[in-house]
Design a protein around this nucleic acid. Structure first.
Lengths: 215, 215
DNA sequence: TAGATTGTTAATCGATTAACAATC
DNA sequence: TAGATTGTTAATCGATTAACAATC
């Protein structure tokens, strides 16, 4: 598969800062702020003005000399770059504590996704109503994916269940994963799939390191 | 407050890779692997052997020329560096879907923390039993913290509740936060507190960007 | 001893910051 | 027009990779 990225050469570090910019701009807009300079923006977010301008200019010239940036239109541009207005069809597998919380708590639409269905294995969970989704049994995965063609899957299953599950999902053309399991997906299927990891334990251990450094 | 870090000059990028090393070493140990070279390790994790060796040598010489690294002892060293055997007294505030899931799902002990208590505001949640914790009302925070002196707090409250809550917690000497709210804590109290952010929406937007790049 | 692999220094690469001409 | 602030190039800084002497 040959891929032509829309923004070649843009560093992942830049991309990871965009949601933060988007969040702050949303806030500013709510507060009725119309324009902002890279300097003011930088002071709020704790970066340098240079970095803000460099980051934005990876994607285009959104500002105006002598004026700065229009808050509403910059927010819209970043939203467009992040494709948060999309509707990427998505499923969630593993409706334990965490899966349940994500289904209830995460605003998928706000981030460009459409959560189509929830799947679980346990008979005590299957059939339950979460928000407006009924939890389906994983045995229905093949049928469901063949019909609705989800592109992405949220993984909240136990690590041991990951290899078989992902093998099955890959056959059903699900190639993008929001991975909450501790299973190391990205190094297993490198280049074949796209994985965004949320390793809560890693994050917590990093905090442990930092706290113990200053203790 | 003057702070003498235990590992001065070690980049946060290095620290963030340690939990990943720790996880792989735990896995290798389970599988009965006794020794590993930086090359084998690098191939598994998808880094270069050079980087592995550079990272580890920020903290000490844990290997042996001609042999490599002993899996068990390297794992122990990294665990010690991350202080995962600690018992940092910690509270969790905000027992909604996410807070509930974290209390149930995250292995705090495994990461060096001890979860002491859960707090919420809503009368429908207060009094409930989660694992072996009874949810307390936030009005008990002052009394509880004065008695048990937690160092860290997990924040799962709505963003609007953050400023007042953190002000109160700071007065009670809680200076370290695992922040799941969308409130931008780190830029508010820069240098006064230690914040580890888990921005799920940011992560999901990053995934959106990546998917739409290759679509 | 010979082979292997580390620890560490040097070279390269990439990201951030500074500077300033362009321009609103 | 004059002042402000961008977009962009150049300089700096830091992180990663390569190379190799030390050594098990």
């Amino acid at each position: 598969m040959i891929v032509l990225p829309k923004y070649p050469g843009v560093s992942p570090l830049v991309v990871r800062r965009l949601p933060r910019y988007y969040r702050l701009l949303t806030e500013l807009m709510k507060n009725g702020v119309e324009r902002i300079s890279s300097r003011e923006f930088a002071d709020m977010i704790g970066f340098t003005a240079s970095q803000i301008r460099q980051d934005l200019n990876c994607f285009g010239g959104f500002g105006q000399q002598g004026y700065g940036y229009n808050v509403a239109s910059l927010r819209a541009e970043i939203g467009r770059i992040l494709s948060v207005d999309g509707n990427l069809p998505t499923i969630l597998v593993g409706v334990g504590n965490l899966g349940l919380a994500l289904a209830n708590h995460v605003n998928f639409e706000y981030c460009g996704f459409q959560l189509l269905a929830l799947f679980d294995e346990s008979s005590s969970t299957v059939g339950k109503d979460i928000n407006h989704w009924t939890v389906r049994h994983v045995s229905e995965l093949t049928e469901f994916c063949t019909e609705h063609r989800p592109l992405a899957a949220v993984l909240c299953v136990p690590p041991s269940a990951v290899p078989d599950l992902v093998k099955k999902l890959m056959d059903l053309d699900v190639k993008c994963y929001w991975n909450f399991t501790q299973y190391d997906l990205s190094s297993l299927y490198r280049n074949e799939i796209l994985v965004e990891d949320v390793q809560l334990a890693d994050s917590l251990m990093t905090l442990s390191f930092q706290i113990n450094e200053i203790l």
